[in-house]
Design a protein around this nucleic acid. Sequence first.
DNA 1: CAGCGATCATAAACGCCGTTTATGACATCT
DNA 2: AGATGTCATAAACGGCGTTTATGATCGCTG
Lengths: 291, 291
Amino acid sequence: MELRQLRYVTVIAEHGNLGRAANALYVSQPALSYALKRFEAEIGLRVFDRNPSGVVPTEAGREVLAAAAEAVAAAERVAAVADRHRLGQVLRVGFEASGAGELTTRARAEFARRHPDVRVVPRRFDWGGEGPALREGQVDVAFVWLPADLTRCRSVVVHSEPRVVGLPVGHRLASREGVSVVETNSEPLMWTDKAPRDWVDWWAVNPRPDGSEPLWGPQNDNVEEMLEQVAEGAAICFAPQSMAAYYARPDLVWVPLTDAEPLRVALAWRGFDDSPLVRGFVEVVRELAER
Amino acid sequence: MELRQLRYVTVIAEHGNLGRAANALYVSQPALSYALKRFEAEIGLRVFDRNPSGVVPTEAGREVLAAAAEAVAAAERVAAVADRHRLGQVLRVGFEASGAGELTTRARAEFARRHPDVRVVPRRFDWGGEGPALREGQVDVAFVWLPADLTRCRSVVVHSEPRVVGLPVGHRLASREGVSVVETNSEPLMWTDKAPRDWVDWWAVNPRPDGSEPLWGPQNDNVEEMLEQVAEGAAICFAPQSMAAYYARPDLVWVPLTDAEPLRVALAWRGFDDSPLVRGFVEVVRELAER
DNA sequence: CAGCGATCATAAACGCCGTTTATGACATCT
DNA sequence: AGATGTCATAAACGGCGTTTATGATCGCTG
């Protein structure tokens, strides 16, 4: 028996529907169906009766679910105890690639100045990873690239920056002062299968202003992999302007995209998080963002 | 966070030593070392300080461990609730191969007669699997082939039977009335890597009466696999006499082993298990075993 | 009655992660 | 110096939990 199983059954009970529970749990319905079946086999009891309209707890299932809810709550208390201790000493800040550019770095420095006894730990994630990491408690706050699912989090947009296209040195567009999105239509574009589809499409500007679809190039998991492939000429990439500064490689050229919607970056934290350190960090970021 | 992690840290705290905790948890020390490290990374706190003499909880660790113990206890209550409901209707009886021979079958039948509303579910395991299954709560009682680790279980030896050697038809020893163990020394012997070493050695009569080691043949996971290989002449096998009856294939011959220690079978149940059904089954088996 | 949509179940494929054995680093004791 | 005990790390491996695709069933609607 594992907490994952207990979390699953309590969410199933909440929704009375495997499909909706699966969505809430960020897994697929068959995974949840199988996990429920395995749990029932393991404890030797049917917890839910299945109907075409959804699932209903059995009589025995109701008591199991009540105990399961308590166990899940007890586990949350472990996490809360750990949070409390850690948040006396450490603040974990999540981000991907260049985060919110200079704002990220300045905020961390200013916060550290105000809280000299607190260690600020930067945590970098692969494409699209900082949101789930926040949700799972791996970080205390995060600079999240939008669009993102911030369910059950609080957030404030703190940064915005234009987008650029990354090209290998010597590329036909490399000497331009600016490039429109449709001008890149014939170039394979770097993309990732790690982030949600809407995020990928947003970054690829898909559909294109002329209605077409991008020419999809190689898949990658993170900025370094992506830039390796761009430098060798396998594809181009779209990125925030801060990446031009943070990843100024001699084999790459960054050219502004003239008609792409800017990236917005939100600072996000868990909805129930009341810790003074988190509040303090939010405050610092807000102040710096307003300058 | 998962219950496995919380169980691990509570047992580590109990023993103050990763090696001993690993033994108690039936995992290897490096697995436990790695799991502890991952847990500490996940919650962002050091739970234990490491010393050459063992591990000591940190101050923060002590509170985490207290909360963890509560969560583990809460999860045990889930299992207890499920047990209570199921044990009103179902008794799961574990065994391997031929179990305790006829005693197994007669006990199940007699118990079912006395408890007509209870479903008796036989659960068969691969070599050495019924003991761990009992420990993990997959069955309520089990006929366990000794030697076995029955830590935290209660047990009573209820059956004993001589051993036989399984041979393919036409084998040079197939027409004998009995065979001594050393007479089989030149024959490859079926064995398993699924059960503990002491169990394997006991079954192989290793060391042999003349001090030699068996000639190890093919590995197998369960009785059917084993018998397939014996029938095709790849190796011989040692087995309890009840298997001669339960697996009387036309391509196999079973000959008594004249000098092998008999198999003893224990009926075992979990040490804390107080359920009337389990007690009732133990009673039935005891009565039948005394006849 | 047929078609459609919603629901849960099952199968096949796949990759990740938790395990194992082997080994190393370090401390302590004789 | 050698032996022993402890925890950490590496490489290899396999099991299991996930995904996508699909099927079965039921209920509703035209």
